[in-house]
């Protein structure tokens, strides 16, 4: 910009140089702030609206889920696995040396009540939905996309996924109802 004939032309005059530099910077600064402020609505419109955010929790009735069964519910557009674990599955999940795990976490931290395991059913590798009761670990999950094996606590054991299946925030509203989110 400083190379343009216009700018060099004015520096010939000498007296106008400082004033013009100030005006350039002031104009540029005000313009930049203005453009950035104007861009915010254009960017923010792509964020979820309040109407979408208001649908952020899902309630699940646990009374119909038998031991050993699992249901998939939709929470924020994503699958959530709700599994009624058997005693053997719980035992297998507890009886693990944490040092062997890629992402060490005790089973007690992942299930508030041991018989109910609630997981976001999305592989932490690249977002596919793992299949239940498959893979190398009994009562675990296997992701068919890139071969990640999860155990009966939803922890990554073998494969490319970096961390365990996510446990969403949830609260038990009463004995048979849980609210996810």
């Amino acid at each position: 910009m400083a190379e343009t004939p216009a700018a060099s032309a004015d520096s010939v005059g000498g007296d106008g140089e400082t004033r013009r530099d100030f005006l350039y910077i002031a104009t540029g600064a005000v313009g930049t702030v203005g453009v950035l402020a104007a861009m915010w609505p254009l960017i923010h419109q792509m964020n979820p609206s309040k109407a979408v955010l208001a649908l952020a929790s899902t309630e699940v009735d646990l009374s119909g889920i038998e031991e050993g069964e699992s249901v998939t519910v939709v929470w924020r557009g994503k699958p959530v696995f709700v599994r009624h674990r058997t005693a053997e599955e719980i035992a297998a999940a507890v009886d693990v040396d944490l040092a062997d795990l890629p992402d060490p976490q005790a089973d007690a931290e992942r299930a508030e009540k041991p018989e109910w395991l609630i997981l976001v059913g999305i592989c932490t590798h690249l977002g596919c939905v793992p299949i239940g009761n498959q893979g190398d670990f009994a009562g675990g999950w296997f992701c068919p996309c890139h071969g990640s094996h999860y155990d009966s606590s939803g922890r990554i054991r073998i494969g490319p996924a970096p961390v365990n299946l996510e446990v969403p925030d949830y609260v038990y509203l009463d004995e048979t109802t849980v609210r996810i989110g």
Binding site: W40, P41, L42, Q45, M46, S49, K50, A51
Partner: peptide, 28 residues
């Protein structure tokens, strides 16, 4: 165009959604 639905049953409602729900949709 990111928020509008070109269908006779949904066009009017989608514009109203832009006006009420979409962040800054009214302004845009």
């Amino acid at each position: 165009a990111m928020h509008y639905t070109p269908h006779v049953d949904m066009a009017f409602v989608s514009v109203e959604r832009i006006m009420r729900d979409v962040n800054y949709g009214w302004l845009i």
